[in-house]
Nucleic acid binder design. Structure first.
Lengths: 334, 334
DNA sequence: GAACGCTGGGTAATCCTTTACTCGGGCGGC
DNA sequence: GCCGCCCGAGTAAAGGATTACCCAGCGTTC
């Protein structure tokens, strides 16, 4: 594996000149620079990243720690981050914390050890290991969920408002017993969506009851159980607000097993506009979140903070859009 | 940010002893080791990854370069890689090449620069920049698709056989004009699935015609266009074999727009068992690939090669499973 | 009692790049 | 014509961890 000295020797210059030439720094004689570049390509020289990071005290890498790689919301977000980061020469490494505070902490430690330039993460709730980042002065931005205590940069969605709007829509469609299946307590998006649901009921002068509310992991299996429980009650819900698309899968399975027809017997609105939402029968009404945009905004915020760590923290809140499809339109109104 | 010397000073020992103690090396007096460990935690010491990588000439990181983060097949695969790698203390960084040979090459360069211990990648076809890895002695394993020329470690699926079986199934169900929508020419899985489709037709003594075959990107949009083209022909297909789940979304959209009922008027089998496959109407027949297992096997293969780069190349081929659902069962047979 | 061996731990070299500092030479201004 | 400045390029230090090598001290054995 050739080093910078090999390139220097071949080009007949010092390593300092090679470094300057390849990094486009300062003023290097154009002829020399050309000689250096040809020498480098002839040798197939690739700079040693760790050595560079060691000297520069920072790697040209940002870490993106998301809570579920299999969730399309986060993969779309990841694309947004990637696209912006690449424009300015940063690489993005993706880490999957799996909604698991331990894994999240491990990845934060790895990020610190590898001296990445910055971290974008969707905090799994209680985890406060983010403090390590703060105390070391590593730039970071929270996405999707705010960090518990500290006021840091964050890019969020007004998910409470969106949940309220979705609930109001269900009310307007004539559903009477509207339930909610949301994520684990302590996960901010889950709590906010529940709060929005309650806001929506209250605005319509409906009483909200815990008997129509269930929480589970943000996964299909948990939502499946939750849906079966709700449907087994004496007075089952006639509509459901579901907190993400993976959960929607679980709920739809449950309805299918029970032979209950979505939209007619039970109205549905789910968060996240998955590619398949239009294909199920009936097409699923969704709250579309601007996942890609969250990623781009977060990346730009992170870059700004890397450049200047003293800037005041910014929280950007983006809106979500309710897309009404047949799953929440009560066809046989009285 | 504390360094190893700070820990050494606080514990009253040399840096060598700190290094040995924290890495569990050789024999260090238990008392000293304990003193070192408490000093390290008190200072919140995190070893400097780049410095370590520089000295060791290798980072405890493996790169996973996949061709589409938004494809559930690859995210499941990623999970498999992660789970195995973490067991032995490696971190996994995920890179999204987007089926784009340039991006793939860039990421391979990044992997080389960062001196990762190994690379797992799903090669985007023609890209031969993998040669760089080979010539530098970096361990690597191909997944999903073999590498063009060289014989390297690879974990594949017998996708041709699976496509043949799926086609035979469609024949057996009484479909007469079976079409195929597959990925770009040159992408091995796309070519294999097409070849398997032809095998299936031949085995049933059917003629295969290019008029029933279309290729596009492995994405919904391309498959959507392809499906519309096929359906607009004078003699449209009455069944389709679709090469992945993203494409299935495009095809189902096209059918929906045309008001054609899947399963009855056009039989469907798609590759990849997406979580929503059972939820569409009618439930989608699929070829389920063992994505997670591909990941675990590939990771183990990579670890073996990192340990011993002289071992002979191994190709593991896993089987796929046809899951028959209603979309490929012709209800109104003659 | 002396010599040898072993063990635990310190010293210092090493990995490769970047960059502060230095130096030589050419050019412009007075 | 000389002085000073500036530009371009080289020298060498620094960055933090690992590890080869070496040394001190203790125990064992004859």
């Amino acid at each position: 594996m050739p080093t910078i000295s090999d390139v220097a020797a071949r080009a007949g210059v010092s390593t300092a000149t090679v470094s300057r030439a390849l990094n486009g720094k300062a003023t290097v004689d154009p002829d020399l620079a050309a000689r250096v570049r040809t020498a480098a390509t002839e040798l197939g020289y690739q700079p040693n990243g760790p050595a560079r990071a060691l000297r520069r005290q920072e790697a040209a890498v940002v870490a993106l720690i998301i809570s579920d790689v299999e969730n399309p919301f986060f993969t779309a977000l990841a694309r947004g981050v990637e696209d912006v980061a690449h424009e300015v020469g940063y690489s993005v490494v993706l880490c999957n914390s799996d909604e698991n505070a331990d894994k999240e902490n491990r990845y934060i430690d790895v990020a610190i050890q590898e001296r990445v330039a910055g971290v974008i993460l969707s905090p799994s709730g209680t985890a406060t290991s983010v403090a390590k980042l703060a105390s070391r002065g590593t730039a970071y931005v929270a996405v999707d969920r705010p960090l518990p205590e500290q006021d840091s940069d964050a890019v969020l969605v007004d998910t409470r408002q969106a949940a309220k709007q979705a609930t109001a829509h269900l009310v307007a469609q004539g559903y009477e017993r509207i339930g909610c299946i949301t994520g684990p307590a302590g996960v901010r998006t889950a709590d906010d969506r529940l709060a929005g649901y309650r806001d929506g009921l209250k605005a319509a002068k409906r009483r909200s009851t815990t008997r129509l509310v269930r929480r589970s992991e943000y996964k299909a299996a948990g939502a499946h159980r939750a849906a079966l429980e709700l449907l087994s009650q004496a007075e089952p819900p006639d509509a459901l607000l579901i907190a993400n698309s993976a959960m929607a899968v679980g709920v739809l399975q449950a309805l299918q097993e029970r032979g209950i027809r979505a939209g007619r017997e039970v109205g549905l609105v789910a968060f996240d506009d998955a590619p398949w939402a239009e294909l199920v029968d009936p097409p699923l009404s969704v709250v579309a979140q601007p996942a890609y945009e969250i990623g781009t905004v977060a990346a730009r915020l992170l870059l700004a903070r890397i450049a200047d760590n003293s800037r005041p923290p910014t929280t950007t809140t983006l809106g979500a859009r309710l897309i009404e499809r047949a799953s929440s339109v009560q066809l046989n109104r009285r």
